[in-house]
C-alpha cells in the first residue's frame, strides 16, 4: 500500500500530486515535463519533497512536518532507470548480485535462478554492460532491481530508450514480471499502449498536477508526445 502526497518547487515548475492505492501496477501517465520522473525520484528518496508525506505499508518514508526523510539506501525500493545504469566495471553476474551484497542478505541461489530464468539473462552472466544490446541491458537492470528484494519497484520509462522492435521484445518480460514477481510496481510512461498492457490502475499527470485517476479505461486513444 503506497500513499504519496507531495509538493515540490523545481525552478519555475511546481509539482503537487497525491495518489495512493494497492494496485499491482500503478501507471504514472503523462507527457514529457509533467513531473513523472521527479515524482518517482521522491518515492525513491533521491529527491526531497518541500512539503508532504510518502508512506509505504504503514511505514513513513517522508514526512516534512516531522522532518522525517529515510535515505534512498534504507527504503528497499527498487528503481529501473530509462538508461539502465548498469555498473560498467562489473560483469552481469556482479551487477545482478550487487543489491544482495549491499543489503547483506544471505545468498539465495533458487531466487537468483528464478529471476535469471524469468528475464532470460542466463547467457549474459559473464559479459560486461558495454557488450550488451539496449534490450539486454534493460533486462539485466530489471533483474538487478528485483534481486535486491524491494517492497516496491519503480520503472521510469524502461522502454523509452529502445526502438519499436526492442520494445516488443521486452514488453512480455514486464508482463511476466507483473504476474509472477509479486512486487508492486509504479510504472512511468507516456505511451498509452504500454500502459494498457501493463498498468492495473492509472494516475494521469499533467503539468505537475494529477489530472485523472482510475482504471486503464481513462487512458486516451493515442500516446502523448515524448
Amino acid at each position: 500500500m503506497l500513499r504519496v502526497e507531495v509538493s515540490k518547487q523545481l525552478g519555475d515548475f511546481h509539482l503537487k500530486a497525491s495518489f495512493g492505492g494497492e494496485a499491482r501496477v500503478t501507471g504514472l501517465f503523462g507527457a514529457s515535463g509533467a513531473g513523472k520522473t521527479s515524482l518517482i525520484n521522491m518515492i525513491a528518496g533521491l529527491l526531497r519533497p518541500d512539503r508532504g508525506m510518502i508512506v509505504i505499508d504503514g511505514e513513513i518514508l517522508d514526512d516534512t512536518s516531522a522532518h522525517t526523510h529515510v535515505p534512498a539506501h534504507r527504503r528497499r525500493i527498487g528503481y529501473v532507470f530509462q538508461d539502465a545504469r548498469l555498473f560498467p566495471h562489473l560483469d552481469v553476474r556482479q551487477n545482478l548480485d550487487y543489491g544482495r551484497r549491499m543489503n547483506r542478505v544471505v545468498d539465495d541461489p533458487a531466487q537468483r535462478a528464478r529471476v535469471i530464468d524469468l528475464l532470460d539473462v542466463g547467457g549474459l552472466l559473464d559479459r560486461r554492460p558495454g557488450q550488451l544490446s539496449g534490450g539486454e541491458r534493460q533486462r539485466v537492470a530489471l533483474g538487478r532491481a528485483l534481486l535486491a528484494q524491494p517492497r516496491l519497484l519503480l520503472l521510469d520509462e524502461p522502454l523509452g530508450s529502445l526502438d519499436d522492435e526492442r520494445k516488443v521484445e521486452i514488453l512480455p518480460y514486464l508482463v511476466r514480471l507483473r504476474d509472477e514477481a509479486n512486487v508492486p510496481m509504479v510504472y512511468v510512461s507516456h505511451d498509452a499502449n504500454e500502459m494498457r498492457q501493463l498498468a492495473t490502475s492509472v494516475v494521469m499527470l499533467n503539468r505537475g498536477r494529477v489530472a485523472g485517476f482510475g482504471g486503464i479505461e481513462i487512458l486516451p486513444g493515442a500516446s502523448l508526445p515524448a
Binding site: D83, R85, A148
Partner: peptide, 14 residues
C-alpha cells in the same frame, strides 16, 4: 557518473 552512484543507493548501498 553520479547517476550510477544514485543507482547504487537505490540498491541499498550506504
Amino acid at each position: 557518473d553520479r547517476r550510477l552512484e544514485q543507482a547504487a543507493g537505490t540498491l541499498g548501498a550506504a
